[in-house]
Design a protein around this nucleic acid. Structure first.
Length: 285
DNA sequence: GTCCAGGTGGGGG
DNA sequence: CCCCCACATGGA
């Protein structure tokens, strides 16, 4: 059981240039953060958190239902706030500098590897709103329902679910996925779940490998190509130098880099720059 | 009806 | 190595 009391919160002062939760949750790296009023809510390790941004006298405060301990142990790490995202880009790289300025405050979240893997297999040839509703349906159908109470011990009228475990999905069949509208991705998901559960794919020890080896292992998974592999490495294994190229980034490369981009200039944070670019090309104007 | 969405697998040349 | 196409689904 977990108590969520919106009248009992903590506030932490953080500059918006360091952490902008609107941008961070909207920039396409995660699919399960949503907004009620001013509050974003989402689930980390089967725990529900409410988070909002307030600005008082030009200073931003993050207000959250997390306890101070939870902030220190869970959210601070989730937002990768230990890391320094300062990076100097070449002055003549006009677009990257513009995108960086526009995306300032985006953090690369430390998301769960399993959830990220399945989410980005679902993402292929799909649009973000539908990815979100499909993943939500997956959680509602096969994830744990969280026992959320208000301060008086009453349940909320809204239900919250965790992401289905490896074991849970490994025991499902293709029709279960087809019923969720997952189409041809269904077999990919069932197969990878069985392989991960049985241990022929190890998504934990994979993180001891080099970036190149991580990508190579991920590419062995059916349904995972270069783009999804880079997303899983970047968002699910926190390899900040990965640079996923999807249709939007390809558009950036064609339009602003004459068809070829030298991502080595963005080392060791090319994944962050990629997020700035993605956010800019989709949401500026 | 057609086109598109944070692509990938498989075939062929 | 490259190019080509089929692949479920739902919304515009």
């Amino acid at each position: 059981m977990q108590v969520i009391d919106l009248t009992n919160t903590i506030k932490i002062q953080i500059d918006k240039q360091i952490l902008d939760i609107d941008k961070t949750f909207s920039c396409g790296q995660c699919f399960r953060w949503n907004k009620i009023g001013d509050y974003w809510y989402g689930v980390i390790n089967n725990k529900l958190f409410f988070i909002k941004s307030i600005v008082i006298n030009d200073k931003q405060y993050i207000e959250t239902t997390a306890t101070q301990d939870e902030w220190d142990e869970i959210l601070y790490k989730y937002f990768d706030l230990d890391a320094d995202y300062n990076i100097t880009l070449p002055i003549n790289d006009i677009f990257a500098n513009k995108a960086k300025k526009f995306g300032e405050g985006i953090r690369i979240l430390r998301q769960d590897t399993w959830e990220t893997l399945i989410s980005f297999i679902i993402s292929q040839r799909n649009n973000i709103p539908r990815i979100k509703t499909t993943i939500e349906k997956l959680c509602k159908t096969f994830g744990n329902k969280l026992d959320i109470r208000d301060k008086n011990g009453n349940t909320y009228n809204k239900e919250f679910y965790g992401f289905p475990s490896i074991e849970k999905i490994s025991k499902l069949n293709i029709n279960d996925m087809l019923d969720l509208g997952l189409g041809y991705r269904s077999e990919y998901i069932i197969k990878v779940a069985k392989d991960v559960y049985e241990g022929s794919i190890d998504i934990n020890t994979i993180n001891t490998l080099s970036d190149d080896e991580v990508i190579a292992r991920l590419l062995d998974i059916k349904g995972v190509g270069p783009k999804v592999a880079n997303c899983v490495a970047l968002f699910g294994l926190h390899r900040l130098d990965m640079f996923p190229i999807d249709v939007w980034i390809q558009r950036v490369i064609d339009r602003y880099y004459d068809g070829h981009i030298d991502i080595s200039r963005y080392r060791p944070l090319s994944g962050l720059i990629q997020q700035y670019m993605f956010y800019y090309i989709k949401y500026s104007d």
